[in-house]
């Protein structure tokens, strides 16, 4: 048994000519908060999306709670059966940049649909728990509203509640505040901060350097499809070793 929730080992990913990931290796321990930073197009989203099979890999291996999701044997990538993959990726939950709430469902239904329809939980209990989750993100008053009736920040908080509803062992955030107006990013960051304090494991792709520094145990800097440097926030932001990270920090800070 391993205490790594996510293990990406020498993962490669190509889109035609573009090498989006080159031998990227990332391990996340239980309870750890990892922030991924890097310039646009460096492969941050792709790395995150390989964890839960939103993208399929072209080389390397992916493990989830120690279980192999995909591995490369003799130069060929082999994925586990679809039903197994489905069960494995439900242990990871993703929060998207553009929320991706289900528009035909109310907030409450967005949160309960997976527990009830996929995990076959008791509907009444699932609804109770969904209300608790909506309360956690500060939106119990919007349970019966439709996504179209919410602000961006509210939508993203519902999306976080929906992600939590499947009881994942890790949360993956892909720039959760990038689609929001600057003045409302705070309400979403507050919820993420709270989840971090409660001990949820998470991987967070973000352009908010201040926030990465604050919540992350470890910061990973990506450039050109590879992981160039990683370490505790104080070192990454205070004492960058590589030239590329120095240039990146100069540009964004």
């Amino acid at each position: 048994m391993t205490d790594h929730i996510v293990e990406l080992d020498r993962v490669c990913k190509r889109y035609g000519e573009v090498e989006a990931l080159r031998d990227a290796t990332l391990r996340v321990r239980r309870g750890e908060h990892v922030a991924i930073i890097g310039s646009s197009g460096s492969g941050k989203s792709t790395l995150l999306r390989c964890i839960n099979h939103l993208e399929s890999i072209d080389g390397g291996s992916v493990r989830n709670n120690g279980v192999i999701l995909a591995e490369t044997v003799g130069g060929r990538v082999r994925y586990r059966r679809e039903a197994d993959i489905r069960r494995l990726i439900m242990q990871t939950a993703m929060v998207f940049q553009h929320f991706n709430l289900f528009g035909h469902l109310t907030c409450l239904e967005n949160v309960t649909i997976a527990p009830i329809r996929i995990k076959r939980e008791n509907p009444a209990e699932a609804r109770d728990r969904a209300m608790d989750l909506l309360r956690l993100v500060g939106l119990s008053g919007k349970a019966n509203a439709y996504p179209a009736e919410l602000s961006g920040g509210q939508k993203q908080r519902v999306a976080i509640a929906r992600a939590l509803a499947i009881r994942p062992s890790i949360l993956l955030f892909d720039e959760p505040t990038s689609a929001l107006d600057p003045e409302i990013t705070g309400e979403v960051l507050k919820v993420i901060r709270q989840l971090a304090a409660q001990g949820y494991s998470m991987v967070l792709v973000t352009h908010e350097m201040g926030f990465a520094r604050e919540v992350a145990d470890r910061v990973v800097f990506m450039d050109n499809g590879g992981i160039v440097e990683e370490g505790i926030p104080a070192n990454i932001f205070g004492h960058p070793e590589s030239e590329r990270l120095r240039l990146f920090l100069q540009a964004v800070l």
Binding site: I89, M90, M94, I113, R117, I118
Partner: peptide, 20 residues
């Protein structure tokens, strides 16, 4: 994004089509 969200929540393709 709707397909992706459904997939991360454990929906099969058929379930995604009919429920989402």
């Amino acid at each position: 994004g709707q397909y992706e969200a459904a997939k991360t929540l454990g929906f099969t393709r058929t379930q995604t089509m009919f429920a989402i």
